[in-house]
């Protein structure tokens, strides 16, 4: 196997809040020991409900936020340890498309200036003719009318702004593109256009995508591999088309609708509240809401373990593909989550 383009090991991000002269600050565990590899050319999806740490994960991976611990190897180089100044020239190789297209472009800049910003920032000097060519090429790449180059962002629709965001992220030809819910704030019809654009770009140039979304159906359609996050942890990693093994993924999947009335089925609702990231319960993070939770789940946190080819789940009692689902899986490393000081 070739070296992965991105290799994340034991990445943690903890936020501190409150605290004073006598009180200890509280710690919020947004991302806890996340590890994964992405191969060049692969599209990996990250799904989970709001607040599960997927956007934080994206920002920490790109060092827009400082990781609390863990390593991030990008093309073999540990970017988690680099000082910010040394990191800046490397940033052209990994870019991000942000969730909110409405505030992602400086309202005072024209689209043309926004598209040329990557070159300015990275110190690539362009002649006037080259600038014109670059802007034309980038706008053609995302099928934007070149007339829009001189307009300001408030003249553009949300979908057009998101295209500008994509073109700007791809301006310096990065090898990794992180997409943080790029379609979440767009209309359904515009969403489809943006997804199609991303698919065709993937075909034209060697691009690796890390696609963050809360829409499991979309991720199953768009991605080669899916990581499911719950409360800052990866609970399942599965290849495209696999049947979920973790009860949480199963519940997520059942909550997405089929566009066919004959496929209608009753929804198994997840009851209960998501626990607070401030003090995580011992054992499995999902146990309070899991229909299958048993004593073992309340005491010992399950680690990610193989449940099929390239398919891993963090569950003591994973569903099929393993036939024997009611006995604890062998090889599960029992680890006790220490309760956090409040």
């Amino acid at each position: 196997m070739t070296t992965p383009i991105l290799s994340v090991t034991d990445l943690c991000k903890t936020f501190r809040s409150g605290g004073g002269l006598w009180r200890k600050p509280r710690q919020f565990h947004a991302v806890s020991s996340v590890s994964f590899d992405i191969q060049a050319g692969e599209t990996v999806g990250v799904v989970g409900e709001s607040g599960c740490g997927k956007s934080t994960l994206a920002r920490v991976v790109l060092r827009l936020m400082e990781p609390s611990s863990g390593s991030i190897r990008f093309e073999g180089e540990d970017i988690a340890a680099l000082p910010e100044k040394a990191l800046r020239p490397l940033r052209r190789r990994f870019q991000m498309v942000f969730q909110d297209p409405y505030s992602s472009i400086n309202p005072r800049l024209t689209i043309r200036e926004a598209l040329l910003e990557p070159f300015r920032v990275q110190g690539v000097s362009l002649t006037t003719a080259q600038e014109q060519d670059t802007v034309d090429r980038l706008m053609a790449m995302v099928s934007l009318n070149p007339v829009l180059a001189e307009s300001h962002p408030h003249h553009l629709s949300g979908g057009q702004k998101q295209r500008v965001g994509i073109a700007r992220a791809l301006a310096l030809q990065p090898s990794l593109l992180v997409l943080d819910e790029p379609t979440a704030s767009l209309d359904v019809s515009v969403q489809a256009q943006v997804i199609q654009l991303l698919q065709s770009l993937r075909g034209q140039q060697t691009l690796t995508y890390l696609f963050i979304s809360h829409d499991l159906a979309l991720v199953r359609y768009f991605c080669d591999r899916i990581m499911v996050m719950y409360l800052g942890r990866v609970v399942e990693v599965m290849p495209k088309g696999a049947t979920p093994a973790h009860p949480y993924t199963r519940a997520l999947l059942e909550s997405s609708f089929e566009p066919d009335p004959t496929q209608r089925r009753s929804i198994v609702r997840i009851t209960g509240e998501i626990p607070s990231g401030y003090d995580l319960p011992p054992g499995c993070a999902f146990q309070a809401r899991c229909p299958k939770a048993q004593d073992l789940c309340r005491q010992t946190r399950p680690e990610l373990g193989s449940v099929g080819t390239r398919h891993q789940a963090a569950c003591h009692f994973p569903d099929s593909p393993l036939p024997d689902t009611q006995t604890p899986r062998s090889g599960t490393a029992p680890s006790q989550e220490t309760p956090h000081a409040v």
């Binding site: 990191l87 910003e117 990275q122 700007r168």
Partner: peptide, 10 residues
């Protein structure tokens, strides 16, 4: 977001 974008660009 545009400030974060700029930081992301380096």
């Amino acid at each position: 977001t545009f400030v974060e974008v700029s930081r992301c660009l380096g």
